[in-house]
Structure formats: C-alpha cells, structure tokens
C-alpha cells in the first residue's frame, strides 16, 4: 500500500533523488561505533539535533496553554502542569531538555575541538557552530523567564544587570532586552517570549540548515 502510494508519486515527480541525496551516503568505518567503540563521540551532533527536535515539539505544545502575560503566565504554567493530562511530562520534556541540549552541544563541540575537525576546510562550519551555541544559550536564557516565578524573575534580573555592565552599550542593551529602563515586567515577558518562540528558533533553523548543508558538501573529517 505505502509502496504503491510512493510509486504513484515518484512516477510523477521523481522524489527518489531528493531523499537519496539527503539520506543515502556511506558511513565511513572510523565514525561507526560498531567498528571502533570510541566512535560514539561522533553521535553527539545527532543527539543534539534529536534533543532540539524534542524542544521544538514540546515547546509548540506548551504554547497551546502558556500565556506571556504577567498576570497569567504563572497561573497558566501551574494550570497546564497540574490540571492538563500529561502536562507534567510535556513541561518536563521541555524543562530538562533545555539542559540536556546544552550538554550535548557542548560534548559535540569538545569532540570537534579535540579531533581538530574544525581545521581547513571546515573553519566556516566551526563559526556557524559557535553561532548555534549562542542561539541555544539565548533560548535557554529567554525561556527561563517564561514561567514568571521568583527564580525566573531574579535570574533575569541578574542577567540584565550583567548586560548592563557592558561598556558604552550596556545600558541601551539592557533597556532593549527588558523593554523598559527600570522595570522588569510586562514588556520584558512579552519580549522574551517573542524572542524565545519566534526569533531565536528561526535563527536556529537557518543556522542548522547551513551547518548540515556544509557537512554534506564537505563530508565528515577523516580518521585521526
């Protein structure tokens, strides 16, 4: 059945080369953990991607209940976690995933660093990777405020003070992030929400796209 649907479409629009180009390529022996167990270090990039997919999916579902408003944000998180079926699991996935994704990203970076995989011709992909790292940190930072509890509030207060410490542009940066020169409040929450849910994920998808296209073009780096 599935085969026939596939054939029907393939006959008309020739989709086979499309996915073959993405999915069908050899895994060299030196990155295959079945040959050398130590090759598991090559999995961290894929694991980062896997956890990112979980973050995106669980985040999309959380926004079905969450509201970015100082009166209701905490209440909506409390409601979705205590009253909605599996709310604790879905929030838990997003909450713990936010830390796991950074750990995976860091391990992936360590592998690339200690194998020297960032060297010519892969310098550009190292730079893109560093940008992904900052986007990820930004997601963690902006997401942390969203539950609008005490921990969230004071963590953001501290972050904003750190931003303010930057010479010359510090004060303007802080105001832009917080939406107000003095108050950490209504406008901070809506800004962080917009950045967390629209701006940074868009940047993340773009950067990941570039990252993966470059990997396909250049191939994985050779054995040590």
């Amino acid at each position: 059945m599935m085969q026939r649907i596939y054939d029907w479409i393939d006959e008309r629009v020739d989709i086979t080369p499309l996915w073959r180009d993405i999915a069908d390529h050899e895994v060299p022996e030196h990155v295959n953990p079945a040959h050398h167990f130590s090759a598991f270090v090559y999995c961290f990039g894929g694991l980062t991607f896997f956890v990112t997919v979980i973050q995106v999916l669980s985040g999309m579902f959380l926004t079905m209940y969450y509201v970015p408003d100082i009166e209701n944000a905490w209440k909506s998180v409390y409601y979705l976690q205590t009253e909605v079926a599996h709310g604790q699991i879905v929030r838990g996935m997003h909450h713990w995933g936010a830390s796991v994704v950074i750990v995976m990203l860091f391990l992936h970076t360590l592998r690339v660093f200690f194998q020297g995989a960032y060297k010519k011709p892969r310098e550009l992909n190292w730079m893109v990777g560093v940008m992904i790292f900052f986007v990820m940190l930004g997601l963690g930072l902006t997401g942390y405020l969203l539950p609008w509890d005490n921990k969230a509030y004071f963590a953001t207060q501290v972050t904003l003070e750190i931003a303010e410490g930057v010479p010359f542009i510090g004060e303007a940066t802080k105001t832009l992030l917080a939406g107000d020169a003095e108050i950490v409040g209504a406008q901070t929450l809506t800004r962080f929400f917009a950045i967390h849910v629209f701006f940074l994920p868009a940047a993340l998808f773009l950067l990941m796209g570039i990252h993966f296209i470059m990997i396909r073009k250049q191939g994985i780096s050779g054995p040590l």
């Binding site: 579902f61 079905m64 979705l80 079926a85 599996h86 879905v90 996935m93």
Partner: peptide, 8 residues
C-alpha cells in the same frame, strides 16, 4: 504525551 496533552 504531547498529543494527549493537546486533546485534553
């Protein structure tokens, strides 16, 4: 869990 959460 996500689908169950959404259709609650």
């Amino acid at each position: 869990p996500m689908v169950r959460f959404a259709i609650d």
